[in-house]
Design a protein around this nucleic acid. Structure first.
Lengths: 192, 192
DNA sequence: TGTATAGTCGAGTACGCACTCAGTAATGAG
DNA sequence: CTCATTACTGAGTGCGTACTCGACTATACA
């Protein structure tokens, strides 16, 4: 009833925040400038998000959801562990390159201390399939002995981040970096 | 001549900044609180560092220098590539665990945008030996084909960071994580 | 011991920020 | 068309910040 909020404006705010957070970090992106870039008055921002922290948390969840979609669609559930891991790797890394600003913004958001426990949990939800794949990998004993789950997943994330950084730096050899990166990860975790 | 500056005060400021930067990030550490924690008046801080940016840059260089010392002392120049890389890995990771606050502060500093080009270059200087070791590794063809220098060094850093994080989280198994971490890195970069 | 010099202090200043609010304009319901 | 409701606006507010400055004090040197 009465005047409804506009989905367009909400998205414009989130887009503007993404760009500014990516370029200058959370502290370097005042609400005044986010509003200006979104083409609205500063007060309007606070009808869509009750404060800056809520905007940050919403943006985090939104981006994580998009990333989760990109990673999990067409997931080859029936294939072997290596193929599944490579699927996740490729989708993750390709998404990061195709959505450079969102990726940069995401890293800023992730290391901020305003993300609530709820948001972090919600952000992890789309990635259960990834977790399971790693569990399978450990269960099937294709990996090194006694490799803790945490070490596998964090190494995956860290090496993917490295790969994306270098792909962004050298676009011509992007595919090369993506594939070599995965081979490095695979060699790191498997027994030989 | 006249009244000299006190090395103690300077160090107190740097120590206080290290603690606060590590705990709350650069933005969350106002000069007023740094001064209070250092036991001096706020104005005094600005006789030792002409502004906050200079404090940040000085702290970065100081920490990098200490880290460089820790990594490079007793460097086994005559041993093979693997032994040299493992020396760097162990020293790096051990330093990170023994100096938790400095490590946390360093990561905050590194991703801030107030570090000058000069500071970054100065910070890299103590690590030439590390660079050379990687060059040697590539030259001696013990590594995968066509592995770019950047990919090796960035993977090293990323995996070391992961190892330190998990060592801090599980102190009992710290040595296990440190050694497994290096094995993973070594497997990642070598041919088999 | 006297004096010039420079370190120390902390209240004060200017500024940028997140957020508010009174006035206004759209919109949906009847 | 009317009215109730809510979105929209942007100048304004209060607060926290980096940094200054005049009064004071410790030190080196003659």
């Amino acid at each position: 009833m009465a005047r409804p909020k506009s989905e367009d404006k909400r998205n414009a705010i989130l887009d503007a925040a993404t760009r500014l957070f990516a370029e200058r970090g959370l502290a370097g992106a005042p609400t005044s400038e986010i509003s200006r870039l979104a083409g609205i008055a500063e007060g309007t921002l606070f009808t869509y998000f009750k404060n800056k922290d809520e905007l940050i948390n919403s943006l985090y969840r939104e981006i994580k959801l998009e990333l989760g979609d990109a990673v999990i669609s067409d997931f080859p559930r029936r294939k072997n562990v290596r193929a599944r891991l490579q699927h996740i790797w490729n989708r993750y890394v390709n998404w990061g390159i195709a959505n450079h600003e969102q990726r940069k913004a995401l890293t800023q958001l992730q290391l901020s201390d305003v993300l609530t426990r709820d948001s972090r949990e919600a952000g992890d939800k789309p990635f259960v399939e990834c977790k399971n794949t790693i569990h399978d990998a450990i269960g099937v004993r294709v990996l090194r002995d006694d490799l803790p789950h945490e070490l596998v997943s964090k190494s995956f994330g860290a090496l993917a981040e490295v790969a994306m950084e270098l792909m962004a730096l050298h676009p011509k050899e992007a595919n090369q970096y993506r594939d070599t990166g995965f081979e490095m990860f695979w060699s790191a975790i498997t027994r030989h």
